[in-house]
Design a binder for these strands. Sequence first.
DNA 1: CCTTTCGCAATATGATCGTATCGTAACGAT
DNA 2: ATCGTTACGATACGATCATATTGCGAAAGG
Lengths: 198, 198
Amino acid sequence: MPKQVDHDQRRRQIAEALWRISADRGLEAVSMREVAAEAGVSIGLVQHYFRDKNDLVGFAVGRLRERIEERVRRSVASTPPPHTPRRLLRAVLVALLPLESEGRTESLVGIAVFIRALGDPDLAATYRRGQALLVTAVADQIRAGVRDGELRPDLDAETEADILLALVSGLTTTLLLGHGSADQVLNTLDHQLARLAT
Amino acid sequence: MPKQVDHDQRRRQIAEALWRISADRGLEAVSMREVAAEAGVSIGLVQHYFRDKNDLVGFAVGRLRERIEERVRRSVASTPPPHTPRRLLRAVLVALLPLESEGRTESLVGIAVFIRALGDPDLAATYRRGQALLVTAVADQIRAGVRDGELRPDLDAETEADILLALVSGLTTTLLLGHGSADQVLNTLDHQLARLAT
DNA sequence: CCTTTCGCAATATGATCGTATCGTAACGAT
DNA sequence: ATCGTTACGATACGATCATATTGCGAAAGG
């Protein structure tokens, strides 16, 4: 056996270069050359670890879900007590907003994936599954809040979850365009959340 | 003076070819050659009417606004009486949703423009201006509804407009992905609208 | 020691991009 | 009639793209 290298770590390292490019010049600026340059390696190396560009982008997309899940988990975990459903619900929604550079990057990649999903049924199904997971997670929190008497009892959890997530999605585009400040956006979200409270 | 040609009509004809391409293959698939081929003209002609690609895309984007405005106007005009602010408000929001193929095309182009705007400050400013117009238009309707006693008097018109438009934006992505039916989406929108009513 | 095989770089290939440069046909003004 | 301008087509140019090919150093097994 020849030299031994951690294959997966190399792939992650390269994918992160793609992430950086996508974040500040858009995914349209992502090319094999650019990724190689950003990662500080040769383009041959990139080819060595990824069959083609689709493979590379696909890998980066796969990591997207992991990272978003981790971010949500972190946000929930770092929520100061009391851990009431309403506070946890807010933590989840806030974690989905691109409020700092890391989140911005993820949102940008997410949009790129969305665009690709429009013409790719498989990817659309994946995207859809992720969205469905989110909706049920949020709806569960809403139901818990209703049970605790923290949220109004006449709420339809699924519809409210749809509204909140659509709202988050819309606020994300607002933030990405610099068309609203973080405070403004959080205010808007809180305004809607307050409406669900008793 | 030599041959006389309707300059602006030619530009519109070419821009519409760009539209068609952008709608079913994304704006990333738009190239001078593709546009020329789709329009059934030579690439020299495209160059003759547009200084460069930016000029072309810019013109097409400009038409986007006009078309959306026209669609909203049509939707409002065709709303059956009574023309209460709340019904007009709904007409505006529904007009922004991609419920049929024409609207779908516009939404797709809109998203493509959004993507480009992320890396193009000028385009971002244009996008932003359009959004600001929408917000004030919606907010005006809300204020009118409040005045008429049709909507709750404690509403902050701007915030509610932000929420509604972000909601519409989020519902648009839902519709484009086939991740929800038109009925479902309209239900969600109406649910939120009902909340603003007295 | 030497052969094999992986890690990686260098460079070639052919397509496609935006754009520049021509050539020419059409037509109004002089 | 011819001249100048405009409309348009054909094609060339250089850059950049994804990808293929080739070569070579290093290291482990024989």
